[in-house]
């Protein structure tokens, strides 16, 4: 279980997180949505323990998160953090040296499923192929929590669809939890159990997708648009 209690974080005078209260149960796939600057990336960094918070608390399985937790949380940043001269195989070796939970066999299996050659250099890969290689490296880790920041951004629909299939196939919700931020709600909603909507560094709404569809009779994007407007009016 991930718990955030009144979490605040500012970059200079910009409030990135402005009092976040959130409970994320294990064994779910949870989407984080919101406009640019709503705090999605900062929220993920905060949970991953790679970004210090200003005030409040972040608990993972009851314990305050720290940089050490990077060892048990597989975090996939939005930015390209890999050495461009690495081949995919070298990238995997690097991961193996950094993370005790890295399972090279699984990473190779994901890579194979996503049809990326192990010998290709990161810098020679197209954006879509690089996105797949990053996904394979992340899913290669046998972590309890996967945190993925915009894993589909800038990728074409075919690649997105393959990545979604990969996520379904290579995560095990009986022991793993997946939290991902995205702009592409329309394409990933099929994957999600829950959706957290952020606005201005706060949680505007947190709902189960079946509830949204069942109770409101709206589709998810329609519901989001309505919530955002209502949030703006407040």
């Amino acid at each position: 279980m991930i718990e955030l209690n009144n979490v605040k974080k500012a970059y200079g005078s910009t409030k990135a997180l402005n009092g976040i209260d959130l409970r994320l149960e294990p064994g779910k796939i949870i989407g984080i949505a919101g406009e640019n600057g709503s705090g999605k990336s900062t929220l993920l960094k905060t949970i991953a323990g790679v970004s210090k918070i200003g005030s409040g608390s972040v608990l993972i399985d009851g314990k305050p998160v720290s940089r050490k937790d990077a060892e048990r949380i597989a975090y996939l940043p939005d930015a390209d953090m890999f050495y461009s001269y690495f081949t995919v195989g070298q990238l995997f070796s690097y991961y193996k040296s950094q993370f005790a939970d890295f399972n090279e066999t699984k990473a190779k299996e994901v890579l194979d499923f996503l049809e990326v050659p192990l010998s290709s250099k990161m810098k020679n890969l197209s954006k879509g192929m690089r996105g797949r290689a990053k996904m394979a490296a992340t899913l290669g880790r046998e972590s309890c929590y996967y945190l993925m920041d915009e894993p589909f951004s800038g990728l074409d629909p075919m690649v997105r669809s393959d990545l979604i299939k990969g996520l379904i196939r290579f995560t095990d919700l009986e022991r793993q939890t997946l939290i991902l931020s995205t702009h592409e709600i329309r394409e990933v909603e099929i994957l999600l159990d829950e959706l957290v909507l952020l606005k201005g560094g706060k949680v505007l709404a947190h709902r189960h997708l079946d509830e949204i569809r069942g109770e409101t009779g709206m589709d998810t994007v329609e519901w989001m648009t309505k919530e955002m407007k209502a949030g703006a009016a407040e």
Partner: peptide, 14 residues
């Protein structure tokens, strides 16, 4: 994706 789903009905129901 495997299947197409309607947007405004719970997926489990479909």
């Amino acid at each position: 994706m495997g299947l197409d789903f309607e947007k405004d009905k719970p997926i489990y129901q479909q």
